[in-house]
């Protein structure tokens, strides 16, 4: 994987973020270079498979991190491409021309994080929420507990216990840790 990173750094402005396993590493690239880099990996480095596209909400840094995970079926190595977006105005170039299924991932991210992908087909269609009238539910400022209490009445008498304490004290007393 080292040689791949070296080859990529020669051509693109990328930085190695971390190598978690011998066959998996993550690189960071800027938003405007991402399409070129991913297209290059797909066409010239045999990373022909898109495993997934997902987003991480880093509310403390005021950033969204998009993760494109690519897979190479010849060497069985995976390459994660991280792209950072501004949280206030999250817009990313649509990559649906690279893989057909990318449009579906982008539709999902639009619905649950509110990230815009201009030009992506059927982007504003409902994905799995029907008639959602709040801020996108996976954003961290959206409080699910408050929303639930307000929208869904809960039956009286429900008890919650701390799972860690219960395991320690009641289920496995004197064992573990």
């Amino acid at each position: 994987m080292k040689s791949l990173i070296n080859r990529l750094t020669e051509q693109f402005k990328v930085s190695l973020e971390k190598q978690t396993k011998s066959d998996l590493c993550f690189i960071r690239v800027n938003k405007d270079d991402a399409e070129q880099l991913i297209r290059h990996c797909r066409d010239h480095e045999s990373y022909t498979h898109l495993s997934f596209l997902t987003a991480i909400d880093r509310i403390e840094d005021n950033k969204f991190t998009l993760t494109y995970l690519l897979h190479n079926y010849q060497s069985h190595q995976s390459l994660g491409v991280h792209v950072e977006l501004d949280r206030e105005n999250p817009v990313m170039h649509s990559l649906h021309r690279l893989w057909g299924q990318m449009a579906t991932y982008q539709r999902e991210l639009k619905e649950i994080y509110g990230i815009e992908f201009p030009g992506s087909p059927r982007l504003n269609d409902e994905f799995f929420l029907e008639g959602w009238d709040q801020i996108p539910p996976m954003r961290k400022e959206f409080s699910t507990v408050e929303f639930c209490e307000e929208r869904f009445p809960i039956r009286e008498g429900r008890q919650s216990t701390d799972a860690k304490q219960t395991m320690k004290v009641e289920i496995y007393p004197g064992r573990g840790e």
Partner: peptide
């Protein structure tokens, strides 16, 4: 279906079916 179970704080799961 009784009180939400493990989905008690889920944003898209109803908690009491008999409502």
């Amino acid at each position: 279906t009784i009180n939400g179970g493990m989905y008690w704080d889920s944003y898209n799961t109803i908690k009491r079916l008999d409502h």
